[in-house]
Design a protein around this nucleic acid. Structure first.
Lengths: 293, 293
DNA sequence: CCGTAAAATGTAGCAATTCTACCTTCAAGG
DNA sequence: CCTTGAAGGTAGAATTGCTACATTTTACGG
C-alpha cells in the first residue's frame, strides 16, 4: 500500500479522529467528541450548528478542520462521509437478541466490509511480493490448515490453474506430516492458521524449514509463534472480536488474500500461460452448455 | 431489506445515476455525464464550476440535485462521496498486465467490497426468512456443491454448532445421490451452485423434492433452472464478470450469506442453545492454550 | 404552417454559509 | 506583578448555494 494505515488526512477520518482525540486542544476536543457521538449527524448540519452543539465558536470548528488536515468544513464532511460508509462505530456493535432479521443482515455485511477494509490497509506488500517470488520458482505447493483455515487452504488449492503449478490442500494432520516428509526443496509449504498458534501447524513449518523447504504462512496474528518458522508471513489483520454471534471475518479476508496472491502470480507467468487459462475457461463453459456438468 | 435495490435517493447514487441517465432532460443529462466522467472531481468543486464544466446554468445543476432526490448540492456531494467509497467505476475496470502489485491489491479489494455491497442490497429477505424457518424445523442438513461452491458447502457445514443440528457437506456426486436417497422428510437439502445450472445439482434437488425433502438453494443467478426444483431460493447476486483475472467474488458473498443464515438460526434457538455455544467456544480456546491443538 | 401552451433552461439577485482578520482572555515564567 | 505567547471568541467580508422571475425551446392542435 502506498499510503500508510493512519494518515490524519487520509480516508480513515474516524479512525484518526479517535487516535488524535487525547492530543487535541480543549475546545477542539469538544468538537471531536460531538462528532464521535453521532457521526451521521454531522453530514447534515452547518458549521454554526456544530459550534452550538459543541458549545464553541464557529472559528474553532473551522480550526478543527484544519487540525484534521481537511481543506475546510465541506471537505471534513466529505471525508467523514467516505469514512462512514464502511461501518459506523454504532453499527459495529455486537448483534443483539432483539435485533430484527433486517438489522442482523445489515450488521453482518457492515462488519464484514469494515473488516475487509481494515485488512486492505494493513497488508504488508513486501511480504506479499516475497510470497509471489517464492511461488514463481516453486515446483509444487503443499497447503495446510484446519477448520476454517482448512476451507481457505482448499480455496487456494482450487486456484492452481492461476498459480500454474500442482497444489495439494491437506487437512489431515497425519497426511500433512507425510506430505512434508516427502517434499524436496523445490516444493513450498503454505501454512494457514488464523490464530497462528495451532501447534501442529507450527511443528509442520519447523520441520519443513529444517528440510530446506520454504514456508509461507497466512495468519491473523502478526506476533504469533508460527512467525518464527516461516520465510514469509502474510498477516491478514481483521477485526475479529470474540462475541458469540460475530461471524469470523478472518476466513473471508484470507480468501481475498488468496485471490490477490494467485492473481499476482498469474500476472508474472506471461502470455502463453494466460492463453492456456483462457482455453481452460472456454472448455469449462462449453462442458456446462453441453450438459456434461 | 426494507428499501428496494434502486432508489434514486438511496445510497447508491452512481448506480441510480447511470440508470436514470437515459430518462433525463438534455441539460441535466449533460450534468450527469460530467459527473460520471470523473466522479471524484465533483467532491471538490462548486456549483458554479460544475455548471461551467457541463455548459449549463447554475440553477440547472441545482435542479439536477432535486431530480436525484438530493436535498441540495451539498447533499449530492455527500451521497456521491458515500457511493464512491465502494469502488469507483474507473477502479472496477479489469486488471491489466501493466498494473503494479499495489494497484492489483487495490482493485481486488475494491471489486470484492463493491460486489459485497451489491449483494447486500439485492438480498430477498422473504426467502431468507423462509430458509431460517425450514432449518429451524429440520433434523438434519445435507449440503451439496462442486468446485468453489463445494468450499461454500463446507463452510456452511462448519457452522453446524450455530445451526444446532447435524450437517453434512458432500462434494462427491455419487455420495450426494446416496445421501439424498437415504434422507427422510425431516431432513433438508442445501444445494449450492453459483451458475444455478449444474446438471447434477439440479437433478439432486428434483429427486429430493420428489421424495418430500425440502430444498434450499444458494445460487448466483436468479433465473436459473435450479430455481424450478427448490422450496427456497437464496439468490446471491454479485458482479462477477468473466474477465480472466477477475476473482470470483460469488463465493465470498456466499460465505457472508452463510454467516447470516447461521446467525439468524442461532438467534431463534433460544438461550439454552446459546449457553452451549459459549461453553463450546470456551473449551476450544482452553484446548488451544493447553497445547492439545 | 402557424399559434398557443407548457415544458425546459437561463438571468439576476438574495440568503445563507463558510472563512478570515482582528481582538480578548487566560496561563506560564521571570 | 508584568510580559509574552497560546487559545479562543467577535464581527464582518467573501464565497457559495438557492429562488423568483424572464426567456427560450418544444410539442401539438387547428
Amino acid at each position: 500500500m502506498s499510503d500508510h494505515p493512519i494518515t490524519p488526512g487520509g480516508r480513515h477520518l474516524l479512525e484518526s479522529l479517535r487516535l488524535q482525540l487525547p492530543g487535541l486542544k480543549k475546545s477542539e476536543g469538544k468538537v471531536a467528541a460531538v462528532i464521535l457521538e453521532d457521526p451521521n449527524r454531522l453530514l447534515h448540519i452547518t458549521v454554526a450548528e456544530l459550534a452550538r452543539l459543541a458549545d464553541v465558536s464557529q472559528p474553532t470548528v473551522v480550526r478543527f478542520c484544519a487540525t484534521m488536515e481537511c481543506d475546510g468544513f465541506q471537505d471534513l464532511k466529505i471525508r467523514l462521509a467516505q469514512s462512514l460508509t464502511l461501518g459506523t462505530p454504532a453499527t459495529q456493535s455486537a448483534i443483539a437478541q432483539t435485533d430484527t432479521a433486517d438489522v442482523v443482515v445489515e450488521k453482518i455485511f457492515d462488519y464484514t466490509m469494515t473488516s475487509l477494509d481494515w485488512a486492505r490497509h494493513h497488508i504488508d506488500m513486501s511480504q506479499m511480493d516475497a510470497a509471489v517470488e517464492i511461488i514463481i520458482h516453486a515446483k509444487q505447493l503443499e497447503i495446510f490448515g484446519f477448520g476454517a483455515s482448512g476451507i481457505v487452504a482448499q480455496d487456494l488449492q482450487q486456484k492452481f490453474p492461476l498459480l500454474g503449478l500442482p497444489c495439494n490442500a491437506t487437512l489431515d494432520s497425519h497426511q500433512q506430516l507425510m506430505a512434508v516428509s516427502m517434499m524436496d526443496t523445490r516444493g513450498v509449504v503454505v501454512a494457514i492458521s488464523n490464530t497462528g498458534s495451532t501447534n501442529s501447524i507450527i511443528e509442520l513449518a519447523r520441520l519443513a524449514q529444517e528440510r530446506g523447504v520454504k514456508v509461507i504462512a497466512m495468519t491473523g496474528a502478526a506476533d504469533s509463534s508460527l512467525g518464527d518458522h516461516v520465510d514469509v508471513l502474510l498477516n491478514v489483520e481483521t477485526l475479529d472480536n470474540t462475541d458469540l454471534f460475530t461471524p469470523t471475518t478472518s476466513r473471508i479476508a484470507a480468501l481475498v488474500i488468496s485471490d490477490i496472491l494467485s492473481t499476482l502470480v498469474a500476472r508474472r507467468r506471461g502470455t502463453t500461460h494466460n492463453e492456456k487459462l483462457v482455453a481452460m475457461k472456454r472448455r469449462l463453459s462449453q462442458a456446462r452448455r453441453a450438459g456434461s456438468l
